[in-house]
C-alpha cells in the first residue's frame, strides 16, 4: 500500500470508524483517539493488509477491538458517563440535528438508538446507517449470521414501537 492509496482508500473511512467508535464509547474525543490508532495501525501493517479483501470491514473490526480495550481501561469513568449520554441536553453536543427544523424528532430517535442494548445498537448502526451486509456485520462483531439477524429484528421492532408511541411533535 502506498501513501497515495492510504490517503485515497483508508483515510476516507475515518468518519465511519468514528461513528462506530462513538457508539461504543459515547465520547467524541475518545472515539477520535481510537480512529487515529486504527489508521496508524493500518499504515504500520500495510504489507500484510494488501492481502485483506475487505479493508473497510477489517478497519471496523479493529475499531471495535480498540474501543472495547478502551472501555475496559476506563470502565469506572464510563459507568458514570453512560447515564449522562441519555440526557437530552447532552445529546445536543454529539448529534448534528439540533440545528434542523425536525430537531426534536431526530434527537428522540437518537435517544431511542442509544437506549438500545449494546449489540442491537451496534448491529443497527452497521446495517441501517453504514450499510454493511449481514455477513460483514457478523465478521465485524464476531457474531454468527442468525444472531445478527435476531439483534437487528429486535432493534427495529423496538424502534418501531417507540416511534409510533410518539406524537407528531416527537414527544413521548
Amino acid at each position: 500500500m502506498t501513501l497515495e492509496e492510504f490517503t485515497n482508500e483508508v483515510l476516507p473511512l475515518k468518519n465511519k470508524l468514528h461513528r462506530f467508535a462513538v457508539r461504543f464509547l459515547g465520547d467524541d474525543m475518545e472515539a477520535q483517539d481510537v480512529v487515529q490508532e486504527v489508521l496508524i495501525k493500518v499504515w504500520h501493517r500495510r504489507e500484510e493488509l494488501d492481502r485483506v479483501d475487505n479493508m473497510e470491514a477489517w478497519c471496523m473490526t479493529v475499531t471495535r477491538n480498540l474501543s472495547l480495550d478502551k472501555l475496559k481501561s476506563t470502565k469506572r469513568k464510563n459507568t458514570v458517563q453512560m447515564p449522562d449520554g441519555l440526557d437530552v441536553s447532552e445529546d445536543h453536543k454529539r448529534t448534528p440535528f439540533h440545528s434542523t427544523a425536525a430537531g426534536d424528532m431526530m434527537n428522540n430517535i437518537d435517544k431511542l438508538m442509544i437506549s438500545l442494548p449494546e449489540k442491537q445498537r451496534q448491529v443497527m448502526q452497521l446495517r441501517d446507517i453504514e450499510g454493511f451486509s449481514y455477513k460483514e456485520i457478523s465478521e465485524i462483531l464476531t457474531l454468527d449470521l442468525n444472531q445478527v439477524k435476531v439483534n437487528l429484528f429486535r432493534a427495529r421492532k423496538f424502534i418501531r414501537e417507540k416511534l409510533f408511541e410518539m406524537n407528531a411533535y416527537g414527544l413521548q
Partner: peptide, 12 residues
Amino acid sequence: ALFRYFEESRNN
C-alpha cells in the same frame, strides 16, 4: 424521520 436520521447520521 427515521430514515432521515439514518441518512444524516451517515453523513455526519
